[in-house]
Simulated scan of single mutants.
Amino acid sequence: MTDASRGGAVSDGSARWERAADLFADWRAGETRAIDDLVRLMTPVLWHVVRAYGLERSLAEDVVQSTWLALVRASESVADARAISGWLTTTARREAWKVAKGHRRADATSDEILEPMLPAQESAEAEVAASDESRRLWAAVGTLDERCRRLLRIIAFDDRPDYANLAGELEMPIGSIGPTRRRCLVKLRAELVRTGAATEGDGDG
């Protein structure tokens, strides 16, 4: 499921996080090229997280860039290299939420605010769909209702979501995030089964 070569494609899931941890550890050990590979690996993920906040392209680019700059400045604060993926996605999510709050138009409808705005042209986030599996997954996410799309894009890459903070950002009661996430995942699996991207038994047990 993975290409173990330096900078090679890595499928979504634990392999991506493990690869990110290795690259981060290599970079802190003095291997300067490792940070370039880490950026290539994780930027598509950060794009999905950031664009879930409805930011226009230029603002999303700024947030992703700010996330990487924050890592350069605070790399020593990440005590465990295995936490780097969570650190990056959490930092990007918080910055995107802050920027989105500051740029909401007074006359914007909630749909305009919440709708993930993916660019029509090929760009950095398209890299996350490099594998057929990823393309099918995000195509299926796109068929879900707006709340499910946003929720899954924000927490899909977070192993331990901070529900307390997410409740404020998503404007949802904290107790409803878990059940809503489960319902959204059920809908997602049904769509994947319908399109042949998954079978009924996938993920059981």
Rank of each mutant, 00 (worst) to 15 (best):
A124C: 05
R160S: 10
E133W: 07
R182S: 13
G175L: 08
L188Y: 08
Y163F: 06
A124F: 06
R147F: 06
R153D: 08
L166E: 01
L118Y: 15
A120T: 02
V193H: 02
A167T: 01
A167M: 03
S131Y: 09
A108I: 00
I155D: 12
E122I: 15
L185Y: 02
A140E: 09
E125P: 05
W87G: 01
M117W: 12
T109S: 15
T195H: 01
L88Q: 07
L114A: 15
A92F: 08
R136M: 06
G168P: 03
R160Q: 05
L152W: 02
R160P: 06
A108R: 06
A167L: 07
R147D: 04
H103Y: 07
A96C: 07
D107S: 09
L166W: 05
A130G: 13
L152P: 05
A81V: 06
I84Q: 01
Y163C: 00
P173A: 12
D162P: 00
A197L: 04
V141L: 03
R94Y: 11
T89Q: 05
L152N: 00
D145T: 09
T90K: 12
R150N: 01
M172D: 08
G175R: 12
A156R: 14
A83Y: 04
L137D: 02
P179M: 02
A92L: 04
R147M: 11
I113L: 15
R181D: 13
S85E: 13
I154E: 13
R147T: 15
L170N: 04
K98Q: 13
Y163V: 04
E171V: 14
A139S: 10
E122H: 14
I113T: 06
P116I: 07
F157S: 12
P161T: 05
L118M: 09
